[in-house]
């Protein structure tokens, strides 16, 4: 049975607005809304529940919506992944808020008021489209920089300009290695494939599996494409992080779930993945044949894992894809 809930946390200190968000979200098939009237309650939810999507107001008493976003992206909440979709829902579109939201890779920035139909579409869109989110450490550094900035540069306007200049080179000036990696990625993406409409029955687990497949494919592609070692190492690191996340999320969900048959099988698959993941993190990329052999074993693991009864094709795909 593929009935799983996608947990959507809605945060707004105005009860009327919070109830509105809660009502709209709960009407979306597959979604279970949780509501928090303040940042503190929201933090507790993020800490103790595996939230799949966050919708938050910005202007609240501390912690504000932006603080929540920063902490979430920096991976400071135990049960919630740092890379879940985040939708900011605010009455004001101030430049400062938008810039910070962009810096912390917020998925969307909605300005109130918004109709239930528009909001529903946005939620469905972000549940179905992954955005590439940097590792948590990146946002942790960003938070540290933001905390330091006021002391070093006291004038607000100047600080803003410096912040923009600091961000631009990272996005615009891609290194040759990055371009090489991206070209290779676009040319070959299908080393591992997550079947269309496939689901384990768990939204977060599907995301992790899909992400793992994608990043391992990236590693495979840069490796067989003979890219520079720095690019291969970078992709290897990301693939290892993806497997770590897969273990982490699986453990979180398993602890709170009663689908024993599924978890028995899935746990067996994870046990088989463990040594492969360890080898992936340690293998010497100069040893071409070893890496190729490891990739073959990983592909075999993937084939074995992406089959019934661990995954099912979601034939009744509607709205979020989870019924």
């Amino acid at each position: 049975m593929l009935i799983r809930n996608i947990k959507v946390l809605v945060v707004d200190d105005v009860n009327l607005m919070c109830d509105f968000l809660y009502g709209v979200t709960n009407k979306i098939i597959g979604c279970q809304a949780l509501k928090a009237p303040d940042g503190k309650t929201a933090s507790d939810f993020l800490q103790n529940e595996a939230i799949d999507l966050l919708i938050t107001d910005i202007e609240m008493k501390a912690p504000s919506g932006l603080e929540l976003v920063q902490r979430l992206r920096a991976g400071m909440f135990g049960s919630t992944s740092h890379d879940i979709p985040i939708i900011i829902f605010s009455g004001n579109a101030y430049r400062e808020f938008i810039e910070q939201s962009i810096a912390f890779d917020v998925n969307d920035f909605l300005v109130k008021p918004i109709t239930s139909a528009q909001l529903t579409k946005k939620i469905q869109y972000h549940l179905q489209h992954d955005k590439v989110i940097a590792p948590a450490a990146h946002y942790m550094d960003l938070m540290a920089n933001l905390a330091i900035a006021p002391d070093t540069e006291p004038e607000p306007d100047r600080r803003l300009r410096v912040a923009i200049v600091r961000e631009l080179p990272e996005t615009k000036a891609k290194s040759a290695e990055q371009i090489e990696v991206e070209d290779t990625k676009s040319a070959q993406k299908d080393f591992l494939i997550w079947p269309e409409n496939a689901t384990t029955g768990y939204f977060q687990l599907d995301r992790r599996m899909r992400n793992f497949a994608f990043l391992l494919s990236c590693f495979h592609n840069v490796f067989v494409g003979n890219c520079k070692p720095i690019a291969i190492e970078s992709e290897r690191k990301r693939a290892c992080e993806a497997s770590d996340y897969l273990f982490h999320i699986a453990k979180n969900i398993k602890n709170k779930d009663q689908r024993l048959d599924f978890w028995l099988l899935y746990q067996q698959r994870l046990e088989k993945l463990k040594p492969l993941a360890l080898e992936l993190s340690n293998v010497n990329i100069k040893h071409h044949s070893q890496v190729l052999l490891l990739l073959k074993r990983l592909a075999y693991w993937w084939t074995q894992s992406c089959s019934r009864p661990i995954i099912e094709l979601n034939e009744n795909k509607q709205d979020t894809g989870y019924d």
Partner: peptide, 12 residues
């Protein structure tokens, strides 16, 4: 802060 919240409620 309060007028901001009221504005949002009114819009809804």
């Amino acid at each position: 802060r309060l007028s901001h919240s009221l504005k949002g409620m009114c819009g809804l």
